[in-house]
Design a protein around this nucleic acid. Structure first.
Length: 595
RNA sequence: GGACCCGUAGCUCAGCUGGAUAGAGCGCUGCCCUCCGAAGGCAGAGGCCGAAGGUUCGAAUCCUUUCGGGUCCGCCA
């Protein structure tokens, strides 16, 4: 039994189209779609089949549409198919067909909407990948939620998903972390140095002054005693301690990050260490492969136009021919000291992901990496041996508001909001849902007060409210029926022909659109669509509910009409199931009741 | 100077990969609880989809130009 009525109808439409136009090229057929209608007067679904193929067939769209539509109802089990507008074929499902989806939903439960479009294709979603130099803050949060919801919707759509975190543990920033952790270690030992006195001796200056490293320093002191310091808790030769401290600090930072992510419901499958990758020589091998393809040369780049850095001087560099793959300029792979650039390392990392089996790679990045997208795609294209592809989902900046006023954040002043603070204040559910109420590539404002408000303008509560209402109806129904009559399986066999009111049928139409919404969000890599679907679904249910207030014969529970009541309970239970199915994608726990 | 993202109702935003008369929330105006959860619903007003060209049966959506806002710009990660 198929779950997606639109996909099913499309098969019949294509069959009818091929009879009318036997020579139709595949690329035109691929453009045929069956979509929900915007206006209920147009029926339940519409297809552009005739308009897409009229030119090729040398026929007028309306006339071709009539030919296709003629046999469609019998073939596809439709109540009607008629030509409209410039050549649409509007299709109307019979009420029985619509109602027959309720048992499908009830039997599937949260699995409703699961799809096979992904065909088990392996997708690697890499997200968060925050530098392990401090706690996660709100800037990381959006990417975490978007990436996680994207991974979930892809999995639901039938892709084989790997959720991955790339640990940037190889650069200068983790050395700076080690120096900062070492300071806390000296403090734990009772050094007489002041922070400023210590900072003078730190190459590049003392960064990461937040007190989150205090426990790290204490842990190192606990593990090693005074053995990593000179006499009197004074700094010792870095050769003695740097690697040790770096490793311990890294482990503790990553543990803290994983804890914060877990509090947000985000759990990665794979953590890949940049350092481990590079120690294995991956970057050099990637450069070798590019060289074999003739994509590496020594050259001099033009300075950026209009914004020449002060210290600019022309310099021969080892460059990758990114321009051959759609980038604007060729990109350097070697620093002047002969070591590899971060880009070179990132090429190796993406090659590694491909080697591990990812047919599609999706990177979720912050907007500040926007300028990096085209070169990374170019590199993947250059090295893709088996048609691997890379898509980058850019998450724009989040501005935090409290009471409508912007919350200013400054790292230097230490006044940035950590992810943990945010979760503690508004809760994981509100954070996750709210982060999905904008498409990723639009800037968003996150209003702390709104996220916990219990009104219609807070989508989290609006959706939760509807689920709680559904559960409440089912709880109240226990006064009319034994529990065994109210299980999803029992309700699935109710006589659904009692569902004839227009708001009831509208509700069913929304529910049956869920599998299509899942597929659309997965294929477009746009998890925010799920949040909007849930919001629309909630609005439909509230409308349906109100009709019971206006007309008592339309209430869900009617003590003197048990058969009708069971049919409506089936609709209510199916609605709750779709909400749970959707909230599972968003990563939000459905509420049984609200208080 | 260049690249990328965004300009849709007074405000905050959707618009399902080019479809029919462009939608929702907030705000504004007027309604609806003896009643399954009013934490809700109905109705009204509000639009040259930033602007100008182009592509075609058809454009908010694609292309070019242009004007605003944002992110970034040879060795950082």
């Amino acid at each position: 039994m198929t779950q997606n009525l639109f996909a099913e109808a499309r098969i019949h439409v294509l069959a009818a189209l091929h009879e009318a136009v036997p020579s139709l090229p595949a690329d035109l057929a691929a453009r045929v779609e069956v979509t929900p209608t915007r206006d209920p007067a147009h029926g339940d679904m519409a297809t552009n089949a005739a308009m897409v193929s009229a030119r090729h067939a040398g026929r007028k769209p309306a006339e071709l549409a009539a030919a296709i539509a003629a046999g469609l109802p019998a073939r596809a089990g439709l109540a009607a198919a008629e030509v409209a507008g410039p050549g649409f074929i509007n299709m109307r499902l019979s009420q029985d067909t619509l109602r027959a989806q309720l048992p499908v939903i009830l039997h599937a439960g949260e699995a409703y909407g699961d799809s096979g479009v992904g065909q088990g294709e392996r997708v690697n979603v890499e997200y968060v990948s925050a530098n392990p130099t401090g706690p996660m803050h709100i800037g990381h949060c959006r990417g975490a939620v978007v990436g996680d919801a994207l991974a979930r919707v892809l999995a639901k759509a039938g892709f084989a998903v790997t959720k991955e975190y790339y640990i940037n543990d190889a650069g200068a920033q983790v050395v700076a972390l080690a120096w900062a952790a070492y300071w806390r270690y000296l403090q734990a030992l009772g050094t007489k140095l002041t922070e400023e006195e210590y900072a003078v001796g730190v190459p590049g200056g003392l960064q990461y002054r937040g007190d989150y490293l205090v426990p790290v320093g204490q842990a190192i002191a606990h593990l090693h005693g005074a053995s990593l310091a000179a006499e009197g808790a004074m700094p010792a030769d870095p050769a003695v301690w740097l690697e040790m401290v770096r490793g311990t600090a890294m482990i503790m930072m990553m543990a803290s990050i994983r804890e914060d992510l877990k509090a947000l419901g985000v759990v990665h499958d794979v953590f890949t260490s940049e350092r481990a990758l590079l120690d294995g020589g991956a970057a050099d091998r990637s450069i070798e492969r590019l060289t074999e393809r003739g994509l590496i040369y020594e050259g001099v780049l033009e300075p950026p136009k209009g914004k020449t850095p002060d210290d600019w001087e022309p310099r021969p560099q080892t460059l990758f021919r990114a321009t051959q793959f759609g980038d604007d300029v060729d990109r350097p792979l070697k620093k002047s000291d002969g070591t590899n650039t971060y880009f070179a390392n990132d090429i190796a990392y993406h090659e590694d992901k491909a080697r591990r089996g990812a047919a599609t790679m999706i990177d979720v990045w912050g907007a500040d990496h926007g300028g990096y997208v085209s070169r990374m795609k170019a590199a993947v294209r250059a090295l893709a041996a088996g048609g691997e592809s890379l898509d980058v989902v850019l998450c724009q900046i989040v501005h935090v508001l409290r009471g409508g006023q912007p919350v200013r954040m400054s790292k230097r002043a230490g006044s940035f909001i950590t992810l943990r603070d945010l979760i503690d204040e508004v809760g994981s559910d509100a954070v996750r849902f709210t982060m999905l109420t904008r498409k990723a590539d639009a800037q968003m404002e996150f209003d702390l007060d709104l996220a916990v408000a219990q009104t219609r303008d807070n989508p989290v509560y609006y959706v939760q409210y509807v689920h709680a209402r559904c559960r409440s109806v089912l709880r109240n129904a226990a006064e009319m029926f034994p529990a065994a009559a109210l299980t999803p399986e029992a309700l699935a066999s109710a006589d659904l022909s009692h569902l004839t009111a227009e708001p009831e049928l509208a509700m069913i139409r929304r529910l049956v659109a869920w599998p299509r919404a899942v597929e659309g969000a997965a294929l477009a890599h746009e998890p925010h669509r799920i949040a909007f679907f849930l919001y629309d679904l909630a609005a439909d249910f509230n409308m349906l509910w109100q009709t019971g207030n206006a007309d008592a014969t339309l209430r869900f529970l009617r003590a003197d009409h048990p058969a009708e009541t069971l049919a409506r309970l089936a609709l209510v239970a199916a609605t709750a199931a779709v909400i749970r199915s959707g909230l599972a994608v968003v990563g939000v726990v459905p509420a049984e009741e609200l208080r």
